[in-house]
């Protein structure tokens, strides 16, 4: 998977490395700002209240 992506990135090594790091940063940002905030309420440790 990662080998396939690497082989399909264009340009010399430096360009490939930059592109690869940018893709990693993009995935991390997507997880941190979209996926995790969505998934978090489904997990148990945020329930701190009792019924009113």
């Amino acid at each position: 998977m990662y080998g396939w992506i690497w082989n399909h990135l264009p340009g010399p090594f430096a360009v490939r490395l930059t592109l690869a790091l940018a893709m990693v940063a993009g995935v991390v940002a997507l997880l941190m700002f979209v996926v995790f905030p969505w998934a978090e309420p489904l997990l148990p440790f945020n329930n701190v209240t009792t019924p009113q």
Partner: peptide, 15 residues
């Protein structure tokens, strides 16, 4: 004061 208990769980509430 109320919070979850044990830590990382919502099994009970600590009061």
């Amino acid at each position: 004061l109320t919070t979850c208990h044990p830590r990382f769980s919502d099994k009970e509430r600590l009061i």
